[in-house]
Design a protein around this nucleic acid. Structure first.
Lengths: 216, 216
DNA sequence: GAGCGCTTTATTGTCGACAATTTATCCATG
DNA sequence: CATGGATAAATTGTCGACAATAAAGCGCTC
């Protein structure tokens, strides 16, 4: 997983807030008061404002002039829209990864799946969280399209995680998702662009249905 | 075209800077000095910083901590990456527009093309600028996917325009693009999702090739 | 003369205070 | 009692000054 090093105070608060929002520590739909956050985190309002501004890049908040910022709400329609975009972009990422991903990175990805396999047998919890994120993350990077990488990694991924974390994602899907990952990597290793995109889109569709069960 | 009403001082500066960057008044690759901009536009550094932060959402600048912000540079590779993403997203927008766009909006879009047709015969300049932007804009809105709308309208569209404006876009393409628009609208009116996406993707590919001639 | 380290300069980051705007409260009026 | 408007409170927007960091300039050493 990528390590984002916080150099400035606004960085730290931004990462902290993003984490808290994704994990629901700061509730969805709640208002972000600048003064409140400033005293709570012991920083000036300037850094709070900067952190909030950056959160809007991740589509985690909505800001209105002279009114303030609110954490986005999680809705069924919102999940649909998000996953439509995600399917399109990540499908393309898988296609481009099949075209451009260096063999070294592909082998590393296969090794990652191997390490996941052993862990899946024991504890189910690890895999579906960090493991799945890491898997998708590597494929996106493998696409070698900076525009796409930014859009997904800095953008909608966090909102995706927010839906997944807060609406839960347990059950038998853990292991079936693993097989889907296997097949996607195989398609990439075979440089089969069509299949890689198809499998990735299908994988994401399954994932959406799984989340929607909780939402409906 | 959507009217973005500037309510705060940071809004105004943001829109102004975005316009200046897209049109090349502020050169691509140049550094954005906070102090310089503050005195130049007669505002405090706080609003300059806020405006610059928002520009990064549009992918028009790159910011490094403790160093500053630079306007992005226009490269051939960057154009490729941008248009790969654009093709994917706008292709999907056309597909969703064919599925969801209200008939009233479709008729308005057809009327818009009619009005363009008459103007194309006389002066070529109008159509390719505002006309084309307006056309794509309406289809994206017609998709009725907020996530997608934000990504395109507030995001990569401005970078797309930056490439087009600064690398030029003259020549015989003006009229052929008009026919492509016609066919896309027809597919949407026919609710033919597959064809709408296909034609949109092709349309964007043509557009890219046309720009690349200037860049190579 | 080239390269390294220190000092100086310039630029960004952070802070607290004030201004402008919105929201809440309260009183008057029908 | 509901409603509307004026006032008061709270919140965001903007400002100028100071702190921290990075870049530039300078002298020293080899």
């Amino acid at each position: 997983m990528l390590i984002e090093h916080a150099v400035t105070a606004a960085d730290k608060l931004f990462y902290q807030l993003r984490k808290d929002i994704v994990e629901g520590v700061v509730a969805a739909g709640s208002k972000l008061s600048e003064a409140e956050l400033a005293s709570q985190y012991q920083v000036s309002r300037a850094v709070v404002r900067e952190a909030i501004n950056r959160l809007s890049t991740s589509h985690l908040i909505e800001r209105k002039a002279n009114v303030g910022a609110r954490v986005v709400s999680l809705t069924s329609a919102g999940l649909d829209e998000l996953y439509q975009v995600r399917e399109s972009l990540e499908g393309m990422a898988a296609r481009l990864a099949a075209r451009h991903m260096p063999v070294a990175e592909i082998q590393a990805l296969e090794a990652l799946l191997d390490s996941h396999l052993s862990k899946v047998k024991g504890e189910h919890s690890y895999y579906q969280e960090a493991g799945d994120v890491d898997f998708h993350y590597r494929i996106v990077v493998g696409s070698q399209n900076k525009q796409l990488i930014n859009l997904l990694i800095d953008g909608i991924y966090h909102l995706v995680r927010m839906y997944r974390v807060q609406l839960g994602m347990a059950g038998p899907r853990v292991t079936t998702a693993f097989d889907e990952h296997r097949n996607i990597v195989r398609a990439i290793a075979d440089r089969d662009e069509e299949l890689a995109e198809l499998l990735m889109r299908r994988h994401i569709t399954y994932s959406k249905h799984h989340i929607q069960l909780k939402l409906a």
